[in-house]
C-alpha cells in the first residue's frame, strides 16, 4: 500500500466536493457576481482533478485560460451591465421544480450508464505523456489545431466588433 493509493482517492474526494458544492452555488446564488466567483472555485476544482488524473499540463492550462482569462471577462461583463438594476427578485430563477426533475432524471440515466461501464474501466498502466500530446498536436491533430486558431482569431475580432461602442449606430435610435 503506497502513499499514492491513499492520497489520490482523498484528493479526488476533496476536489469532487469542492466542484459540486460550488457548482450548486453557481446556479443558485441570486447575486450574479457571487455566482461568477463560485464558478472560479469550480474551475480550480476541475484543474485539481486534471492534475490528479496525471494531466498536469491541462490543469495549468485550465487555471491560466479559465481562471485567468474567462473569469476576468465574465467579471468585467457583470460590472459593465450592473446598471441594468436587476434586483434579486427579478434575477430569481423560474421553473425550478420541472428543471430539477429533468436534471435529476438525466443524472440518474447517466449514472446508470457509468455504473454499467465501471467494471471495464481500470486506468492504463502508463498515463499519456506531455511529449505524446505535443507531438500529436503538430502531427495527427495539426488540422484541428490550426482551425482552432482561425476560430479564435475570428471570435476575437467578432467580439471586438460587436462590443465596440460604434456599433450602436445601427440601433433602433
Amino acid at each position: 500500500m503506497t502513499l499514492a493509493s491513499v492520497v489520490i482517492p482523498l484528493g479526488v474526494a476533496a476536489m469532487a466536493l469542492l466542484v459540486l458544492a460550488s457548482a450548486v452555488l453557481v446556479v443558485s446564488l441570486r447575486n450574479i457576481f457571487r455566482a461568477a466567483l463560485s464558478l472560479g472555485l469550480v474551475l480550480i476544482g476541475v484543474a485539481g482533478l486534471f492534475i490528479l488524473l496525471e494531466a498536469e499540463f491541462l490543469g495549468f492550462v485550465q487555471i491560466l485560460v479559465y481562471v485567468g482569462a474567462i473569469l476576468t471577462l465574465v467579471v468585467f461583463a457583470v460590472m459593465l451591465t450592473a446598471k441594468a438594476g436587476v434586483t434579486g427578485a427579478q434575477a430569481a430563477s423560474r421553473q425550478q421544480g420541472p428543471a430539477a426533475i429533468v436534471s435529476l432524471a438525466l443524472f440518474a440515466l447517466l449514472a446508470t450508464v457509468v455504473n454499467a461501464l465501471a467494471p471495464s474501466m481500470t486506468p492504463a498502466p502508463d498515463p499519456p505523456t506531455l511529449r505524446q500530446l505535443g507531438q500529436g498536436l503538430i502531427t495527427t491533430w495539426v488540422l484541428p489545431f490550426e482551425v482552432i486558431s482561425l476560430v479564435f482569431v475570428s471570435a476575437m475580432v467578432g467580439a471586438i466588433a460587436i462590443a465596440s461602442s460604434k456599433s450602436s449606430r445601427s440601433g433602433p435610435a
Binding site: 466542484v19 459540486l20 457548482a23 450548486v24 453557481v26 446556479v27 469550480v42 476541475v46 427579478q90 434575477a91 430569481a92 430563477s93 423560474r94 421553473q95 425550478q96 420541472p98 428543471a99 430539477a100 429533468v102 436534471s103 435529476l104 438525466l106 443524472f107 447517466l110
Partner: peptide, 14 residues
C-alpha cells in the same frame, strides 16, 4: 453531476 447542474442552471436562470 456537473453536467446536470449546468442543465439545471440553463433551464432556471433568467
Amino acid at each position: 453531476a456537473l453536467f446536470c447542474v449546468g442543465i439545471y442552471g440553463i433551464l432556471t436562470r433568467r
